[in-house]
Amino acid sequence: MAFPPPVIATSGPSGPDTPLVVLLHGRGSHEQEILTLGDQLPPLFSYAAVRAPITEGGGFAWFANRGIGRPVESSLRSTMDWFRTWLDEVAPTGRPVALVGFSGGAAFAGGLLLDEPSRYAGAAVLYGTLPFDAGVPTTPSHLSGVPVFVAHGAQDRVIPRDLLDRTWQYLTDESGALTTAREDQVGHGIAPAAVPALASWLTTILPR
């Protein structure tokens, strides 16, 4: 499937050597909404909020799915390839890149990281699930030594609980990732207290 060129919203310094934080919005949302998160994160880094390529209601989505949190493998592969074409242009190998995804964007960030762990300085999976059974490896120790930030909502009724639990278990144990994990007393949304924790995590994984 052919997708349109990416629509990108940016903030922060834009030097080619400045670490890049890519912000990935949730299903049915858009790049301007997730860009507001960058306003609360360290001003040392470049922020690029990417619009997902699939039209979904009044917004956009990262992949077709078989149910909430369950991507169609061929769709996820197509959009990940599309994303990598853009990323390789703006951040050639050597420029540190961190992924921060919320909800559907968390699944997409997780898919990108699982597909090529060495490409990224780390990934934040916020209030979402990894894309299990969607063509990307989730084998033991696959993310060995890779920094990951995961946050879940204790009252989340959008993402199926079995997928949240499976994501938590994999990232904190089986994957081998260097995982910072938190569960917040919220539903399906970013807890205010998680934002400074995310900001602190970014400063530990990206050069300043």
Results as ranks from 00 to 15, higher is better:
3 F>N: 09
3 F>L: 13
4 P>F: 04
4 P>A: 15
5 P>T: 08
5 P>L: 10
5 P>M: 02
5 P>H: 07
7 V>K: 15
9 A>Y: 12
12 G>C: 01
12 G>T: 06
13 P>Q: 01
14 S>P: 03
14 S>I: 08
15 G>K: 10
20 L>E: 00
22 V>P: 04
23 L>M: 11
24 L>F: 08
24 L>N: 08
26 G>F: 05
28 G>E: 10
31 E>F: 08
35 L>D: 06
36 T>C: 07
40 Q>D: 13
42 P>S: 00
43 P>A: 13
45 F>M: 04
45 F>N: 09
46 S>T: 14
50 V>D: 03
54 I>P: 01
54 I>K: 04
54 I>T: 05
56 E>R: 14
59 G>Y: 05
60 F>I: 01
61 A>C: 04
63 F>H: 11
65 N>I: 09
66 R>A: 13
68 I>H: 04
69 G>N: 04
69 G>T: 05
71 P>W: 12
73 E>A: 15
74 S>E: 13
79 T>V: 08
79 T>L: 07
80 M>W: 03
80 M>A: 09
84 R>N: 15
86 W>E: 10
86 W>Q: 12
88 D>E: 15
89 E>C: 14
90 V>A: 12
91 A>W: 00
91 A>M: 03
92 P>R: 10
94 G>T: 05
99 L>P: 00
101 G>N: 04
103 S>A: 14
105 G>C: 08
106 A>E: 02
107 A>T: 13
108 F>C: 06
108 F>E: 12
109 A>R: 13
114 L>Q: 08
115 D>G: 10
115 D>H: 12
115 D>M: 03
117 P>L: 13
118 S>I: 05
119 R>H: 09
120 Y>E: 06
122 G>P: 04
122 G>C: 04
131 P>E: 05
132 F>Q: 08
133 D>N: 09
134 A>V: 00
136 V>W: 11
136 V>F: 13
137 P>C: 09
138 T>I: 09
139 T>S: 14
141 S>N: 15
143 L>K: 02
144 S>F: 09
148 V>L: 04
150 V>N: 07
151 A>K: 12
151 A>Y: 10
152 H>G: 14
155 Q>R: 14
155 Q>I: 02
158 V>F: 02
159 I>E: 00
160 P>V: 02
160 P>L: 03
162 D>E: 15
162 D>G: 09
163 L>N: 00
164 L>F: 10
169 Q>W: 14
170 Y>M: 02
173 D>I: 06
174 E>G: 13
174 E>T: 14
178 L>Y: 07
179 T>P: 05
181 A>S: 04
183 E>R: 15
183 E>S: 15
184 D>T: 11
185 Q>N: 15
186 V>S: 03
187 G>A: 01
188 H>E: 00
190 I>S: 11
196 P>W: 07
197 A>P: 00
197 A>Y: 02
199 A>N: 05
201 W>H: 01
204 T>L: 10
207 P>L: 07
207 P>C: 12
208 R>N: 14
208 R>P: 06
